[in-house]
């Protein structure tokens, strides 16, 4: 009873004490108003724009003046086969990217950790970060030339007599998903490995010593100490990334896609851009955006809950 009362009084500050604190924090509170206003305008006001997805939106009349049409826009959207193609492509490419970039990042981190020569290790690691800092524009320029008719890939294949004439890699619809996956692996492996390398350094060194005394070689240490040691990190990152499968996939697809492979290269974002901005059909673009956000939020909440249950780590 008594303890409860004390706890209660602690939780609810008296009005007087509150005023005193507020006076002390005058500068912070004034700034708070600015930050709330800024966040409201740039992060929350766009949410009001979701109403456009439920309207027969006319730019001239604005959100307030346009007529509400219920779920009609969504009906049009869901009946559009092209939209479902973009959903499929987004999911497929996100999952391919997730699987391959995770595998390569882990492989790279584990193998790099085994290197004893510090200069070599530092050099490889420094090089591995390089592509992450390039913009996708530059990366796609590089990709375009590497896979081009005089690029190294065609030359190697021709020298090995696999092909007789240079291939145009960007003309195979199904191949596009793999090109994107390779590009993402090339660009992000070193960067993604940072987190796994940090997890490896936090493994208890005594375990390795014990394994060495028992005569365990490198394979044994890697298989039975390093990998289990970072298993938790791997699982958490995988789960959390699954929540983002609909949120990625724009730049490479937009920059490298072409009309021949459109059915396999277009993602939801490109659909939104095409209908919303280029065709000025704001309602359908907004509806597609709402669909993606809604699915993403549900996925993130689920994956966050699973991650929380798996370990103590969670999103916030």
């Amino acid at each position: 009873m008594n303890a409860n009362a004390i706890r209660g009084s602690k939780r609810r500050m008296s009005w007087k004490a509150w005023c005193k604190q507020a006076k002390e924090q005058k500068s912070l509170l004034v700034l708070s108003v600015l930050f709330f206003a800024y966040g409201f305008i740039f992060c929350y006001l766009p949410l009001v724009g979701w109403l456009i997805g439920f309207q027969d939106y006319r730019p001239r009349d604005g959100i307030l003046g346009s007529k509400f049409v219920g779920l009609q826009v969504f009906q049009t959207l869901f009946e559009d086969p092209e939209f479902w193609l973009t959903v499929r492509n987004t999911l497929a490419m996100s999952l391919l990217n997730l699987v391959f970039s995770t595998i390569f990042a882990i492989l790279f981190a584990v193998l790099l950790n085994e290197v004893r020569c510090m200069i070599g290790k530092k050099f490889v690691q420094t090089v591995s970060y390089l592509p992450h800092f390039l913009s996708w524009i530059v990366a796609c320029n590089i990709l375009f030339d590497t896979l081009g008719s005089t690029g190294i890939v065609n030359e190697l294949l021709m020298k090995m007599h696999v092909i007789t004439a240079p291939l145009n890699f960007f003309s195979y619809p199904q191949g596009f998903w793999w090109i994107v996956a390779i590009a993402v692996v090339w660009k992000e492996t070193g960067w993604n490995a940072i987190i796994y390398l940090a997890a490896i350094t936090s493994i208890d060194p005594n375990l390795y010593e014990a394994a060495a005394i028992d005569g365990g070689g490198r394979w044994v240490k890697m298989r039975y100490i390093t990998l289990p040691g970072i298993a938790n990190t791997i699982i958490i990152l995988l789960i959390l990334n699954v929540g983002n499968v609909l949120n990625s996939g724009f730049e490479v697809q937009y920059l490298m896609g072409n009309d021949v492979i459109r059915d396999f290269s277009q993602t939801i974002d490109i659909y939104v851009l095409k209908w919303g901005i280029s065709q000025s059909n704001y309602a359908i673009g907004t509806a597609a955006g709402i669909f993606r956000s809604a699915v993403s939020i549900v996925l993130i909440l689920i994956t966050n809950a699973i991650a929380k249950r798996t370990s103590d780590t969670r999103l916030f």
């Binding site: 966040g39 724009g49 730019p59 704001y282 907004t286 955006g289």
Partner: peptide, 30 residues
């Protein structure tokens, strides 16, 4: 700041923005 009166509210206000955003078209129009 541990004593900041709006600490909880301010943190939540910004964390929400990590999960929900208007999307390309509403942002563009705004």
């Amino acid at each position: 700041r541990p004593k900041y009166l709006l600490k909880k509210q301010m943190n939540l206000f910004w964390i929400i923005t990590m999960y929900v955003n208007g999307g390309m078209i509403p942002v563009f129009l705004l």
